[in-house]
Design a protein around this nucleic acid. Structure first.
Length: 298
DNA sequence: AATGACCCCAACCGCAACCCC
DNA sequence: CGGGGTTGCGGTTGGGGTCAT
């Protein structure tokens, strides 16, 4: 039987979007907000499937998108986040305001991979290239096992992040600075997925000129949305605090709205996109949903 | 100027997670 | 609790643009 197609393929356009289609989509979302992508095309008078509309909006038409080249700083952030998260482009994008997962993914594949290789770093494992071949087998055996999750598994939405394929078990604060193969708990890292899909090991050996593993892992929490930086400071995520209960994982996963609720500090990024479009004057309306710190239209 | 190779990125596809009845 | 529908994610592709010959 199989599932029904997401759209009436016979009556949908494919390929590049025309300006008129873009305008229709923008107009519709301005009037009605995001959501219900399946019915949106029909309602907006578009001969596109809902998925296509969603992609077009998220990757190209959204008003808060930052166009243009990636900065050197963004490069480094992406590299560091990738070393921690692997190919979790949406999570990485969540820390780079105005950038989309697709954009980052493309940028990674076309630029950063090459950049890392030219630095002598394996873009998949973030280890020095010459040691990658020698350690390939041991890498598989001693998976990174980075665990930024709280001891109690997150529920619901947060599970999306928690389900990041691998069993990751170490708190950010306890990430070994030197030898992961000896200090990680391998017994918790026996996923059967292929190495290709694993997040790379901790970048402890990734020299980056200074060889300071913690400096790499620290990420300095200057990453991402201003609000999250604010959260980081006020809610005291601090990699140097070994007793800090809030893990880095938690930090990564925490939507800005949650951080705001916890800290009582208005989040500058918790800005309703409706407001950005001029529909509301407040910072965010109550109907807007926050996903990974980015609000959707209500 | 023509053509082929390569690069880049928007868009598609399939799948898994999530939601709701 | 189960099943169907919807959404979101990550991998892949294809076509337009650019560069080299």
């Amino acid at each position: 039987m199989g599932r029904s197609p997401c759209c009436e393929k016979a009556h949908t356009n494919k390929g590049a979007w025309t300006k008129e289609e873009d305008q229709r989509l923008i107009n519709y979302i301005r009037a009605h907000g995001e959501g219900c992508w399946r019915s949106l095309p029909k309602a907006a008078g578009l001969l596109r499937c809902g998925k296509s509309c969603r992609l077009r909006w998220i990757n190209y038409l959204r008003p808060d998108l930052k166009r243009g080249n990636f900065t050197e700083e963004e490069d480094e952030i992406i590299i560091k986040l990738h070393s921690l998260l692997g190919n979790k482009w949406s999570l990485i994008a969540g820390r780079l305001p105005g950038r989309t997962d697709n954009e980052i993914k493309n940028y990674w594949n076309t630029h950063i991979k090459r950049k890392l290789i030219s630095r002598g770093i394996d873009p998949q494992t973030h280890r020095p290239l010459n040691s990658t071949a020698a350690t390939t087998t041991t890498v598989a055996a001693a998976k990174p096992c980075l665990d930024f999750r709280p001891s109690t598994p997150p529920s619901s939405k947060e599970n999306t992040a928690a389900s990041m394929n691998e069993p990751i078990t170490n708190n950010i604060n306890s990430i070994p600075a030197t030898d992961n193969s000896s200090s990680v708990d391998n017994t918790k890292c026996n996923s059967s997925t292929t190495e290709e899909s694993q997040p790379p090991p901790p970048p402890q050996e990734v020299e980056e000129g200074n060889g300071a593993a913690h400096a790499v892992l620290d990420l300095e929490l200057s990453i991402g949305l201003p609000s999250q930086c604010k959260y980081t400071k006020s809610a005291s995520f601090n990699s140097s605090s070994s007793t800090e209960s809030k893990s880095f994982y938690d930090f990564l996963m925490r939507p800005a709205a949650v951080a705001e609720a916890e800290t009582g500090t208005p989040s500058t990024a918790a800005m309703c996109l409706c407001w950005q479009l001029g529909f509301q004057k407040g910072q965010s309306c109550s109907n807007c949903r926050s996903i990974n710190g980015l609000y959707r239209y209500c």
